[in-house]
């Protein structure tokens, strides 16, 4: 999951970036509106957190610019001004949710996860594909009711694939959304991770939830719901 943080207060930006990296996100961050517009346009952003009070331009303008250029990833706005006028204006500019500063980090994580899920078209916080259940709120995966022990990265891979269940996800797409760009984008790493996830989700090979389409990518079976 690729998260863009637009926040001019360096302390908060770093702290948030750290928090989301720990949770397995790929995080891009900036404190300037111009760079924010650029990052949002050029990077495969899944979700953005935007502070409305930027020094060089309003966060609202940044969101408006993205929307005008058909970038429709979900956006959560952070605002120090708790006025409803600002919240309403922010959401009318194209944001999907708001959070008033200061906030609990857990609250922000929950809102971001909910936005991701909703953007992928899932109404319920629990994703279900056959007997594989992924609880986006608790960030837990169970197979046949049994919890699966996962690292943050593994969880994000499964989440990404399940959010796009039934669709073909290419290796490039996976690495773009799950790896920071300065890391070595060796496709072997993805293959290794996929192999590991497969073993964890399907230890006895009876379910086959994850198809490999040679040369095209992977597809998570939507299963019978």
């Amino acid at each position: 999951m690729r998260l863009l943080i637009v926040e001019d207060e360096a302390n908060l930006r770093e702290s948030l970036a750290e928090q989301f990296r720990t949770a397995g996100f790929v995080v891009d961050s900036t404190g300037e509106a111009e760079e924010a517009v650029f990052l949002g346009e050029e990077y495969p952003v899944d979700v953005a957190v935007v502070d409305l009070g930027l020094p060089d331009a309003s966060g609202m303008d940044v969101i408006r610019t993205w929307r005008e250029r058909r970038r429709d990833f979900p956006v959560l706005i952070l605002t120090a001004r708790g006025r409803w006028q600002d919240k309403v204006a922010g959401l009318e500019a194209g944001a999907d949710d708001y959070l008033v500063k200061p906030f609990q980090p857990e609250e922000l994580a929950a809102r971001v996860n909910a936005l991701l899920r909703r953007a992928a078209g899932w109404a319920s916080p629990v994703l279900e594909c056959g007997d594989i259940r992924l609880d986006t709120a608790a960030q837990r995966v169970t197979v046949g009711g049994q919890p699966v022990n996962l690292t943050a990265y593994e969880y994000r891979i499964i989440e990404y694939l399940m959010l796009h269940a039934g669709q073909v996800v290419s290796k490039t797409e996976l690495s773009e959304h799950l790896y920071p760009d300065d890391d070595d984008r060796d496709s072997n790493v993805i293959e290794v991770l996929i192999g590991r996830v497969r073993r964890k989700l399907d230890p006895d090979g009876s379910r086959q939830p994850l198809e490999t389409l040679r040369g095209r990518g992977y597809r998570f079976s939507a299963g019978e719901r």
């Binding site: 207060e9 302390n11 908060l12 702290s15 948030l16 009070g53 120090a80 500063k101 200061p102 980090p105």
Partner: peptide
Amino acid sequence: LAHSLKTPLAVMTSH
């Protein structure tokens, strides 16, 4: 004032 008070509070919370 809101901005300058709330951002440090947010930082403290995250710490």
